[in-house]
Simulated scan of single mutants.
Amino acid sequence: MRIANLDGRATLLRSDGRGVDVETASSGRFSRDPQQAFEHWPALRAWAATLDVACFLPLTTDTLLNPVPRPRQVFALGANYRAHAAEAGVAPPEVPVVFTKFPSCLTGPRDAVALPTERVDWEVELVVVIGREAREVPRADAWSFVAGLTAGQDLSERTMQRQGPLPQLSMAKSLAGFGPLGPVVVSVDEFTDPDDLELGCAVNGERMQCSRSSDLIFPVPALIEYISRHCTLYPGDLIFTGTPQGVGATRRPPRFLVPGDVLTSWVEGVGELRNPMTGPGGAAAAATAARQQASLSSR
């Protein structure tokens, strides 16, 4: 199953571009609110399996928004790819390095991002969407608590990140627009091997990152086991699982995003984000767009 936020409405999509509005097709049983889809994920999946293929009609996907607009919690992982830890000059961590991205930073798969400084870096990530409440989940059962997977960018302001005696990870990675997400959430059963997916990103068509999630130091089941041991995970929560090698800060010389760049990010089997970068003057427009998205998604 592939679920999207199409102009503020929960929509089931097929890989051929045909789709169906969840609220309309279910006669109101399920909400139009994309976030509510994850609150009722098992029931929604069971219902979707009964839909006749004739219900799916051609749709334009020009108005795809963030498919998970209001998660309670957004967890993120640092140094969770072997090659990325090596390029950063750090030893592979012995336990997951967990921080948070604030939900207010999330934005859509086509939204512009206003760059607040000249040191904003890219970090493509495989993102997990939780499908049911999880507490002390054993690794062997972890995938059954996942609603689906999506693509994300953990954009990072590197000066703020390194200010002070300790890293400012959450603040530096939670500025406005620093969490592009989408374009859809794809249920786990759509993947032949959800533990081995290609992901990458490009700036203006030049590939910067390309790896496979099999290089994760702590794969998805290990992350869910670890986080749920300490915190309760709720439906619709997100886990940004970490970024592979190829970030701008470790290049020689370092390279960062500039206004006019187009950042394209992808995860195998999920699809592509395409986010244009604007200058500080574009901050007001980006903020207005984010408010409009949040308003649409809560109706």
Rank of each mutant, 00 (worst) to 15 (best):
I3T: 02
F75D: 00
A284L: 15
A140N: 08
N66I: 03
R252I: 15
T232K: 14
G8D: 13
V270G: 09
T117G: 00
H40C: 12
F102T: 14
D52V: 01
T117Q: 00
S174K: 09
A176L: 04
A283S: 10
A286W: 05
V124L: 01
L115S: 09
V188W: 11
G177N: 10
P259G: 06
V137M: 09
R139S: 09
V124P: 00
N204L: 04
G164E: 03
G19S: 07
R32N: 03
F145M: 06
E87D: 14
S187C: 05
M171Q: 07
L64W: 14
H230L: 13
D237Q: 06
C210Y: 03
R70A: 12
V247D: 00
A86C: 00
S26P: 15
R291T: 14
T159V: 15
S211Q: 11
R45S: 12
V124G: 00
S104R: 02
V124F: 01
A86L: 11
T278F: 01
F56S: 10
T100C: 01
T250F: 06
I227F: 05
L65C: 05
A83G: 06
P34Y: 09
D215T: 02
E136Q: 13
P219L: 03
T61F: 04
G248D: 13
T24W: 10
P34A: 02
A249T: 11
T11G: 03
D111T: 12
P244L: 08
D141G: 08
G179T: 12
S213M: 13
A283L: 13
A48G: 14
M171W: 07
A48E: 02
G148N: 08
P253F: 14
L181A: 12
F256Y: 15
E225I: 07
R110Y: 07
H84T: 15
E136D: 12
L155R: 02
V258T: 12
T63F: 07
E23Q: 15
T243I: 10
G282H: 15
A287Q: 05
R9C: 13
W122S: 05
E198R: 09
G131C: 11
A114L: 03
R291W: 05
L166S: 13
A49R: 15
G246D: 14
T63K: 07
